[in-house]
Each structure stands twice: as structure tokens, then as C-alpha cells.
Simulated assay, not measured.
Amino acid sequence: MRRFHAAAVSVEEMQDINTYAVVLSERHDGTGIRLEIQKALSFDDQDRASGMDTYCLCTESGACHHGGVTRWMAGENSIEVSLDEQASSALGVDGGFHVEVSAHYLPILRVALQRLLGT
């Protein structure tokens, strides 16, 4: 499990690029360990045909993977995102992410993760 404290947390809907995203970054300037969870606001037939009609996980290394979350949960001061073997391998992490965040971000993160990842 890759563990870090997110000094920067962003949840944004960007209609101009058809994306809804959560970004958790180790440093305020967006550098360091980073987890991005993105999902298009709408999908086309090509997205559906290629299996890209789901969320995408990306890290600071540029590694990306569509799908692969087996479970997620929000605690009192952290979120945890567990990954299947294929996603773990593609992203270079062992099992997923455990991210400590300030408690005041948790209500919006719960809503955002529900929107991106479902139950």
C-alpha cells in the first residue's frame, strides 16, 4: 500500500475538457507523490468499445490505468483505495493507496469518490 499525506486536495469538474477529477498531492505545489482519479463527464461509442468508459487512475510518474479499484473507504482522516492486481502492477503500487487528508476535506471527498468510483 502506498501511503502519503496529501497537503493539496482538489476536486473539480472541468466541462471544457469533459473531465471530473480528484487530485491528492503530497505537496502544495502538486509535486511529490500524487494520486489522480479522473472520469469523463460523458462517453462516446469509441470509449465504450475500447473499455475506456470508466474512471482512470494516474500517479506522479505518469502511469495510468482504467478501472481496477476493488474497494474504497473514507475514514476519519484518510481515504483508502484498494486495487486489483492488474491496476497495482500498472501503477507500480502494492495493493493501492492510503492517503491521509485533513478531516475538513473528507465530506467532499466522499461525494467525489462516490461519483467517480461508485460503491
Rank of each mutant, 00 (worst) to 15 (best):
S25H: 14
S25C: 13
S25N: 15
S25E: 15
S25Q: 15
E26M: 07
R27I: 03
H28V: 14
D29S: 09
G30T: 13
T31F: 12
T31I: 04
G32Y: 07
I33G: 08
I33R: 09
L35D: 06
L35S: 04
E36G: 08
I37Q: 03
I37C: 02
Q38C: 11
K39C: 09
A40V: 03
A40N: 12
L41E: 11
L41V: 02
S42V: 07
S42T: 15
F43E: 05
D44Q: 09
D44R: 05
D45E: 15
Q46K: 13
Q46G: 12
Q46V: 14
D47Y: 06
D47Q: 10
D47M: 13
R48C: 06
R48F: 04
A49W: 01
A49T: 09
A49S: 09
A49K: 02
G51P: 01
G51Y: 06
M52W: 13
M52G: 09
M52C: 04
D53A: 13
Y55V: 06
Y55A: 00
C56K: 05
C56A: 10
L57Y: 11
T59P: 13
T59C: 09
E60F: 02
E60K: 00
E60V: 01
S61K: 01
C64K: 00
H66F: 11
H66S: 08
G67E: 00
G67M: 02
G67C: 07
G68V: 02
G68T: 04
V69P: 08
V69L: 04
T70N: 02
T70M: 05
R71T: 12
W72K: 06
M73S: 11
A74N: 02
G75V: 06
G75N: 13
N77S: 14
S78I: 11
S78M: 07
S78G: 05
I79N: 10
E80K: 02
V81L: 04
V81D: 06
V81R: 01
V81P: 08
V81M: 01
S82N: 11
S82E: 14
L83K: 06
D84G: 07
E85S: 12
A87M: 10
S89C: 06
S89G: 11
A90W: 09
A90R: 05
L91G: 00
G92Y: 09
V93L: 03
V93N: 04
V93G: 00
D94Y: 00
F97G: 06
F97K: 05
E100L: 11
V101T: 14
V101W: 04
V101Q: 00
V101S: 06
V101C: 03
S102M: 12
S102P: 13
S102V: 07
A103N: 09
H104P: 03
H104D: 15
H104F: 14
H104V: 07
Y105E: 15
L106H: 12
L106M: 11
L106S: 11
P107H: 01
P107Y: 03
L109W: 03
L109F: 12
L109K: 03
R110K: 15
V111C: 08
V111G: 02
A112F: 05
A112R: 03
L113C: 04
Q114R: 15
Q114W: 13
R115P: 03
R115T: 10
R115S: 06
L116G: 01
L116C: 10
L117G: 02
G118R: 08
G118Y: 12
